[in-house]
């Protein structure tokens, strides 16, 4: 649904996006992560045919961005970084305007607007002027605008950045629902927890280049390594950590806990438990240390910084 091949954008001598390749199949969510100025917005703008790629190609919903810009924009819903609402308009009037722009019949616009506004808990604000909306309400309305014409592809820039937890949950639920309806999403965000919850695939962009791309598990394995297990016992370990060193890779240990890395938890964990019980050690818990997307992201960026410095 979203395919980019060597997509590049130069502004004069500055290369904002550097030969990026992305493939997001229908019904999946790609989270595009990166620092401010990494090239996320420029990438999204090329995908909506707002900016012309300097080289490379991008196909969105089957349409090439340079050959069929109007078709691309018709099949894409965009939540821009700045919501850019018309403050003097009322909520319903605003959506009616965009409905006309997308050539939706007024009755259809109203039907869809009411449904989406209800889904996002905004029905009460339909007749309020947008200047009276809170920041979170404005963001939700901008999302409703992006979804109004029922596009198969949605490009969302920071979809929940200004929202309270309840509103953010509503938006995440809406994204999950739409994903089930085969809608395709590209989300740029700094909220890594959200990205981890929503995304099927994660791409990290830095200085205009994609430096990591894959599922969470793939990235975790690639950049953080094998899972880390933590064993907690009742009482003291009394040299048990040393005994285990021939079986697993001990990372660190305390008086009543051990952390080890294993590539085969299915085999190693029962083995560790058996040996502990054999020595009369009472095991309280054996659980994996949770690896977060934040760990992966920081690792990826640090590694890339190292590469960049070495190259320099």
């Amino acid at each position: 649904m979203i395919e980019c091949h060597d997509l590049t954008k130069d502004f004069g001598t500055f290369r904002a996006v550097d030969r990026i390749n992305l493939n997001v199949p229908a019904g999946s969510v790609l989270a595009l992560l990166g620092a401010n100025g990494a090239g996320k917005t420029t990438t999204v703008r090329m995908m909506t045919s707002i900016l012309q790629p300097t080289s490379g190609t991008a196909r969105i919903a089957g349409y090439e961005v340079t050959e069929s810009p109007a078709q691309v924009r018709a099949h894409v819903g965009v939540l821009t970084e700045q919501h850019g609402l018309y403050e003097r308009m009322k909520g319903m009037d605003y959506l009616a305007f965009f409905g006309r722009v997308y050539h939706l019949p007024d009755s259809e616009t109203r039907k869809r607007a009411l449904k989406l506004m209800e889904q996002f808990g905004l029905t009460f604000a339909l007749d309020k002027r947008l200047g009276e909306y809170s920041k979170g309400m404005k963001q939700k309305l901008a999302l409703v605008r992006a979804m109004l014409h029922n596009p198969p592809v949605l490009l969302l820039d920071e979809p929940t950045s200004a929202m309270d937890p309840v509103s953010a949950k509503q938006v995440r639920d809406a994204i999950i629902d739409l994903q089930k309806e085969s809608r395709t999403f590209l989300i740029t965000t700094h909220n890594l927890t959200e990205a981890q919850i929503l995304a099927n695939k994660i791409a990290i962009i830095r200085h205009g280049k994609i430096i990591a791309n894959g599922t969470f598990d793939e990235l975790a394995r690639q950049f953080v390594g094998d899972p880390i297990m933590e064993l907690r016992v009742n009482g003291e370990l009394n040299g048990f950590a040393k005994d285990l060193a021939d079986t697993v890779n001990i990372l660190e240990s305390g008086t009543d806990w051990i952390r080890y890395r294993t590539s085969q938890p299915q085999q190693d964990n029962p083995n560790v438990l058996r040996r502990a019980m054999g020595l009369g050690i009472e095991v309280v818990t054996l659980a994996p240390i949770t690896q977060t997307l934040e760990d992966i992201y920081l690792r990826v960026v640090r590694e890339d910084e190292g590469i960049t410095e070495e190259t320099a």
């Binding site: 909506t48 707002i50 109007a70 078709q71 924009r73 018709a74 894409v76 965009v78 821009t80 970084e81 700045q82 919501h83 850019g84 609402l85 018309y86 965009f98 722009v101 997308y102 901008a142 605008r145």
Partner: peptide
């Protein structure tokens, strides 16, 4: 004014030429 308020981009993302 629209450029300043950044309300132009949503419009630019529509199929209007």
């Amino acid at each position: 004014g629209e450029k300043e308020r950044r309300s132009l981009e949503p419009l630019l993302s529509t199929p209007l030429t």
